[in-house]
Every structure is written in C-alpha cells, then in structure tokens.
Design a binder for these strands. Structure first.
Lengths: 344, 344
DNA sequence: TTGTAGGCGTTATCAA
DNA sequence: TTGATAACGCCTACAA
C-alpha cells in the first residue's frame, strides 16, 4: 500500500495535525519538528491523495468565466467549451459560472469583474480587453486574493497568473510563412482582412505577418489593411471591394472573424480555390472552405484546450500545486484540408 | 451542497446500505424498495462522487505501459512522457509501470503483455506492432477484463478500447500537401526516406503521401523509397546516395526517425535550406533544423498528450465514466519555424 | 431483505 | 506548539 499521513506521523513520532500543518505549510510548527516531518515524508516517498484531500476539505472551487457575447463562431465555440468543461469538472468539485459580457467593452468587463468579486469567486477567467483600466481591475482582484487568468486575448502589464492563449505575433509570422510559400510565382500583392485595429491580438498578428513578409518575401507587397469588424456582411463587402480594385491579387490573409463573408466574396468574384488564402480559427465555415479549397490553411487555437487549461491553472493556484509541464501550453495549430480532425 | 447517499436514504426512507445496493445494482433489494430508491435518486438529482467511491474502495489503478526500447529521439520522448505522467497521476491513485520491450518484435511484445496480465494489471497501453498474434494477445487481455489502448501505432482488428495516436494516412496526405506547394517550380522529383517498410504507421504515411501527390501534384514524381531503419547513420548514408544520384532533386519527405542523419546528409551535399524538406516528430534535431531552415515543416504528435490521453481513457474505462469530448483526439500538429513552441 | 457501524486518506476543530 | 477526534461521501462487513 501507499504511505499515508499516518505513516508519516508514526515515522516522525508526531501527531496527525502536525503532519498536516507541514504538508500544507501552515504556521504553528517548530523548525525542529518541521524538519523531522519533512525528512519522514521524503524518506517514505509520500504522495498526497488529492481525492481524499478534496473530500476532507469539502472545498468547492467557484470559478467565473467572463466571455464576450459576440455572435461569431469562435466565441460560440468558446462559450460551448466553457459549458462542456463545467460539467466535466463538476466531479472535481469545480463549479463554473459563465457570464456573457458585451464584446470589446472595457467598462462592461470591469463591472462584471467587480461583480464576481462581490459574489465570492475563487478565480476568474476573462477574455482580455487591452486597456489600463482592465489591467487595474485585474490587479485589484489579485490584491483581494482572487487569481485571474486571461483567455484567448491577453492584457499587458496586469497581475494575471497566466495567459491561456496563443502567441499572436508568432501566429502572424506563421501565416506569412505559409502564404508566402503558397503564392506562386512568388511575387504579387496580398490583401489583409482584419477584425478591428482595436483588438490587440489582431494587431499582433498583423505585426508578425508584416515582419516575415518583409524579411523573407520582399517581393510580396502587402496592401492596405481592410477591416470587417469580425462580421460576415462587412467582411464580404470589404473583400469584394478589394477584389474589384485588385484584379491581380496574389493572396489573402484573414486575421479575424467573419470568414463566412470572406468566402462568399471569393466565390462571387470567381477566385475561390485559385487564390491562396490563410485564415484563423477552425469553425464550420472555415472548415468547409478548407475542404473545398477556398481557404488554403487555417490557423487555430483549441478553445476546449484553452478553457480546460484555464481551469487547471486556477485550480493549481488555489491548491498551491504545480501544473503539468507542457499540458497548458496552447499551440498554434495549422490545418490544411488533409489534417482536419475527423469528427466534431 | 450536492446531494449525497444520505439524502437519498432520508428521501426514500431506507438505510444507507440499501441505497448503495441500488446504486451498484447488486441483489438483495425488493423491487418495491428499489423503485422507491431510484425515484429518490432521480428526484434529488444525485450524481455519485467517483473520487469518494474509489477512496472507500481503496482502489488503485495499476496501469502498464509497454514501450519500445528504441534509441531514437521520439521513443525517448515517449518514455520520458510516461515517466512524467506517472508522477503527475500518482496523486490520483494511478500507478504506472513502464516496461521497455524490444522494438518491432511481436513475440517480445506478446510475452510482455502476458506477463503484465499475470501481475494483475488494471489496464495496458502498448505501442502496437501490427500482427495478428498481437491482435490476439490484445483480445485475450480484453477477454480477461483488462482494457488495452494502443499508443502511437495501432493494431488493426483488435479489441483495444482506443487508439491514442494520429491518423497516419492523413499525416502522409498532409506532408504531400505541404511539400507539393513548397516545391517550386511545381515540377520535379522528390525523394522519400522511410524507417522501415515493416512499420505499419510508416506505410500508411507513405500511402497518404502518394495519394495526394498523385491527385494534386501530378507533375511531381516520387522516387523509389529509401530506408534508414529510423537510424541516423543509415539514414545519412541512404540520403547521401540519393542526393548524388539525383542532383536535381526537388524535395524530400522523411517518414520516420533518424532525421539527424538526414540533416547531416543535406548539409554535406550543400543543399541544406535550398531544398524543401518535410519530416516527422519534433525532436531536438528536427527543431534545430527547422530553425535554420534545413527542414521546412515538421509533422508532430505530442507524446505527452498521447500518454495522458491513454491514462485518462483507461481510467475512465475502469471507472465507467465518460471521457471529455475532444480532449483525447490526438492532433496532427504542423510546425514551421514560426510556430515552434517556445520552451521545452 | 434490510440497517448499523466502521474505515478509506485527508483536513479541521478543539482542547491540552 | 502540539495532538486527539470528528468529519467529508462512499463502500462493505456484519448483524438483525
């Protein structure tokens, strides 16, 4: 059998409570006793049984997820992922409350954060809006002992304990690396469709994209960015305009949402499948476009992974335990039609 | 608070033991009582706390991992991942025993499987060797109530409860899709370096590769496959020979291991960075080659993810619980120098 | 057929 | 600064 706290107690010649105090490094133990206990722990190779610990603690982890109420597919997937994780983690005594907040609205986000603080949250996950007010709100929560993680979109210079999302600068670089090679002959003008200049993650993707095109594909010219507000209709209009103005377009990089509109515009212009296109986030529409060749490659971040990761990080923080190396690194996934996950 | 067995007992007006008998549908309860209890369970919405149940049962999960003793980097990573997972899951009453078995040796694998069966295993994970004898051994274990998962390499027509690995046919297709676009101008001969024709996953990758080149890049000719036995020296020799014989080579697809040798051969021939190369598995050497441009893209499967997934699947099977949708789907990851994970 | 009492490994309360 | 002792939610003798 595995060693238990009783074995430690017996081995160290102390009582159960003392062992517990050492294990959870709580005060009220003399240095000498502490050393004795720690020696015993190491010697018999004790590993704490988390299930038993949680049972005894009767502790419930109440975590709050603040997610934009955006209508685009990715945010829908993200909200669904939160709901899924909520039921999956229920058996680990984790209770998730999902709050929808107005998108790109720092004030609303801050209000929601203050509200969760008032309701006694054990941890908060937010999709960041990059403003110093939001950073201050994060710092405030953190000061009250409520850990905060940022999800999908980070907030700079704030006391979040982790960012559960991808490196968007690297994602932009990756997009350029792919699109640059897909453009043949390797010269021409490429268009960039973006959600909004106000979105920090979009800006970083653009920066990365520009960097690599400049370094590695100097023959390629990046046309002035057009914005689609992550909205299908506006994106369609913007891309149609672009295609009309630039009949010899060599490729497109779609940085944000609204790809349904992008696809429609490409189809109407009759260039679907003949123009290299790199887009972000695997959704129903990008998946279909990948299948039929309208989109060449999709860069993706797995919302399920991001949410589970956020929960694990928050929980580990509360428990004072370590997270598993590698498990919580969100990958920049690349999908071609050939490596699409089969189901879902 | 969540309802417990006590609540059921109180609500149904019976004792704890009766509730337990109903919950685990064991005999010794009258139909009438059973109905009463079941009604109460449904009414108060009881969900069993599996952790507490297992604590009470004193259940330990003894899982055995049978991994090839191969010297190549990927298998080393896999073994390290097993060791990591072993310590991470220890706190969840999971005990992992790692056994190294001779690579590509069906007899040895079968012997090891029979051995674990004798030592009372609660579940077994094997890196498959595709033979009907191995399939039979899996069926035998399964017949004895010991669940089996295949890891990295599957075994066809066997009673494994899940394959924790990638779709290798799709991986081959993906490689072709990338290499086909990286080859410019889009015509020429590409070489294929493979570990062994005996490895099922390698063969499937080759099939997928051939399929897409044939369908989509008919101007590209695939040269006869050369074998390197997943070994650096042999791979270097094979590729050097190939490069000498084919001065106008347009690209290389490396299906298996031994990529250190591939890189050396490319460097010695002075074509490093000037020839599109797609390889498998992110290791120290492929990572470095990706960074300096010797390899254009690496297809990867995350061994840490695969091992954790195997454990989760086995554990869920013994517990009779569901696995989390999406979490255990192993992705075909694509890495360019730009989306390399930063650390590790 | 049913119920009671104890224990799984940990934490928390209280008294010493 | 310490140590009994009683929980936590469930399962399993054993008794009735």
């Amino acid at each position: 059998m595995r060693p238990t706290v009783h074995d430690i107690a017996a081995n160290a010649g102390v009582g159960l409570a003392t062992v517990d105090r050492v294990l959870n490094n709580r005060p009220g133990v003399s240095e000498k006793t502490r050393a004795k206990v720690e020696e015993a722990i190491a010697r018999i190779g004790y590993v704490r049984d988390v299930a038993a610990a949680n049972l005894a603690k009767g502790r419930l982890y109440d975590f709050d997820f603040l997610v934009p109420d955006n209508d685009n597919s990715f945010m829908k997937l993200l909200r669904a992922a939160v709901a899924d994780a909520a039921s999956a983690f229920a058996r680990e005594r984790v209770r998730i409350r999902l709050h929808e907040v107005p998108a790109f609205d720092a004030k609303a986000l801050i209000a929601a954060m203050e509200n969760t603080a008032a309701t006694g949250s054990a941890g908060v996950a937010i999709v960041g809006v990059d403003s110093s007010d939001v950073a201050a709100a994060i710092d405030a929560l953190n000061g009250d002992g409520v850990p905060v993680v940022t999800l999908v979109s980070d907030v700079q210079n704030a006391a979040r304990i982790q960012f559960c999302g991808i490196n968007n600068f690297a994602a932009g670089r990756t997009a350029a690396s792919l699109l640059g090679r897909f453009v043949t002959p390797d010269v021409g003008k490429v268009g960039v469709l973006m959600g909004s200049m106000l979105a920090n993650d979009h800006r970083r993707r653009l920066d990365g994209f520009r960097a690599v095109i400049g370094e590695t594909f100097p023959q390629i010219e990046i046309l002035p960015v057009v914005e689609g507000q992550d909205d299908a209709e506006q994106s369609e209009a913007a891309v149609s305009l672009l295609l009309n103005a630039q009949p010899g377009l060599a490729g497109v990089y779609s940085i944000g949402g609204g790809n349904r509109g992008l696809v429609r515009a490409l189809e109407k212009a009759g260039v679907a499948g003949r123009l290299p296109v790199v887009a972000h986030e695997l959704t129903q529409s990008t998946r279909a476009a990948l299948r039929d060749g309208t989109i060449s490659a999709v860069l993706h971040q797995d919302p399920g992974h991001e949410v589970r990761s956020a929960i694990r990080v928050l929980k580990a923080h509360v428990d004072g335990t370590e997270t598993v190396e590698g498990q919580d690194r969100i990958r920049i996934e690349i999908y071609l039609k050939d490596n699409l996950p089969e189901d879902a």
